[in-house]
Design a protein around this nucleic acid. Structure first.
Lengths: 222, 222
DNA sequence: CCCTCTCCATCAAACGATTGACCGGTGCAC
DNA sequence: GTGCACCGGTCAATCGTTTGATGGAGAGGG
């Protein structure tokens, strides 16, 4: 019964380190890397239920059994993908928070950084959007463990930069809702086509809109 | 080949009337009604791929074959659900647009009506969110046929109520992104719980936020 | 040098379960 | 008896998962 698949993370209470204890490092990373990247792309595009393990394996150029050998079951793979997605997001935001200044320019810079991150990693808004629509109990811990501390830190920082008569929680949520909405589906242009993160002109328009939005919500100068 | 399933809508170019030509009315509506309601609830909660026809049948208290007998295949059922969801949404918005006045009060009233509609039919934001994340070509026509005209009409009305230096398209998109985001996942409160459309206090807070947002975006008095 | 032996990554094949779709039949109302 | 609403049973396909086998890289002994 599930004897020796490495990188299993089957318990759910493990610390989530991708490479386990019984391996040096680096040897099995290319395959695992390819699997995680392909899975992230497919989960973002098709959702969890819409993505089959065989499709992931094909996208990674491997056999189904090899995928299971490296990352365990499908749910383990999904958790690893989400964990890695959030790790990247947290890293980007911590870098942005490092040179945060408690004024209007600092807030606008923070918004810019997050939008830049979404442009650079367009699969991540889709991953979070899919996860946002699912309330499966066994993946809900991602939220309490990762999303909450991050939102709290951002909220705390921003709160120090604005008056105390504004609703920072809803402002942060609004930025996320809009950015993820734009990042996943884009906006309908005059011809009815959806233009999103892959269209620099659409991104520029959305960026300007987002800055106006933030300035208005937080009563900051644009 | 697919000889006599009523309400088929198999072509895709049909006009989409649920009850076909060869029936008076009312006789088969209870079962079909139950099926469509159960399917809407399940598609909203689990997504298209996460919902099985057997689950829908069980929720409707019918056999799988009976579901197929009434609504055809799974894709037909999904299209019927989406069409009905949009029909309800369009009806609500047309009712709201009927007494629209081209001023700040009119815009705020419009926003209120849409939020009321989402509170009343909380499965609809989830249905649209799931559809928003999917770009399957065979259901994309829903967007060009339904969403676009509605957005165009709203945009046109609102444009007459505000100055011409505001980006109405992005403003409408923002209201939708935020309302659907709040409607599907709610916001995290101090205890880390998600509070959404089922919590009147959370709705009231979101409503106030939305009005501030709209006033700021459209440069209207609150 | 060659021959074993042991890992390890990979694969084809198959597992039971579930999926969407379909066929034939049943009971009831008119 | 005719038509309609409905159901049990079955189909091929696909799902996630597992098994057993293969091949190559390295270690060690001769």
């Amino acid at each position: 019964m599930r004897s020796d698949t490495p990188g299993g993370m089957t318990g759910g209470a493990t610390d989530g380190l991708p490479s386990g204890a019984a391996s040096g490092e680096g040897s099995d990373e290319p395959a695992r890397e390819r699997i995680l990247e392909a899975a992230a792309r497919l989960f973002a595009a098709l959702g969890y239920d819409g993505t089959s393990t065989r499709l992931i394996a094909e996208a990674a150029g491997l056999n189904v059994a090899t995928v299971a050998y490296h990352v365990g079951g499908k749910r383990d793979l999904y958790l690893a993908v989400m964990e890695r997605a959030h790790r990247a997001e947290r890293a980007a935001l911590e870098r942005a928070l490092a040179d945060f200044t408690p004024d209007a320019a600092g807030v606008h810079r923070l918004v810019d950084r997050y939008l830049d991150f979404c442009v650079e990693r367009p699969e991540i808004p889709a991953l979070w959007m899919h996860r946002w629509l699912s309330d499966a109990a066994d993946i809900a811990h991602l939220e309490s463990r990762y999303v909450r501390p991050l939102l709290d830190e951002i909220g705390e920082r921003v709160r120090g930069a604005v008056g105390d008569d504004v609703d920072v929680d809803f402002a942060v949520a609004t930025v996320i809702w809009c950015t993820h909405g734009f990042g996943t589906g884009g906006v309908l242009d005059a011809e009815g086509r959806r233009r999103g993160l892959d269209d620099p002109r659409a991104v520029a328009r959305f960026r300007a809109h987002l800055h106006r939005l933030v300035a208005a919500m937080l009563r900051l100068p644009e």
